[in-house]
Design a protein around this nucleic acid. Sequence first.
DNA 1: GTGGGGATTTACT
DNA 2: GTAAATCCCCACA
Length: 181
Amino acid sequence: MPVLEAAPRLLDAMFTHGGVTLRLTEVEAYDGADDPGSHAHRGRTERNKVMFGPPGHLYVYFTYGMHHCCNVSCGPEGSASAILLRAGEVVDGLDVARSRRPNSSDRDLARGPGRLCKVLGIDSGDDGLDLRESLRLGRPLDEVSTGPRVGLRLAADRPWRFWITSDPTVSRYVSAKPRTR
DNA sequence: GTGGGGATTTACT
DNA sequence: GTAAATCCCCACA
């Protein structure tokens, strides 16, 4: 399935990892074939090799010296496309989730890509994980919004961010912070 | 071997 | 609003 079709299908999907279940509310599509914003744009490397592999696997990367972000690889093998999981609502394993982010309100537990990985207990060791057992798609939604991607320097204007309209757990970093130059 | 930058979060003023 | 935290990866020499 092409990444731009698959991304909205992940909304409202159930993702279980590390004893916590999340209902996904916000994702972003990355298409390495012709996408300057993707890690895969400059070809296959040791870090992004999972994106070049078969669909349905977890691509985990470490950034800013302290955060992990996770993606679902997508499309036919070799296409290097992936979908970043940006936010979700904790629907099971709330006690575990709270213990991983002690000073957070329930609503903010997985509100952002770094936070999402934290509450699920995802780190580099989960890179390449097969998601067959842990990701359950829901029915296609009507209430889906799209808009520009967040936090990228390049090609941030492509409307490849998808979220569930009006959902309170969607991250509010809508207006990208201007980068100093 | 080295250097610049990053798909972010948090705290502080 | 702005700044600091913090380290791995990749490109280049």
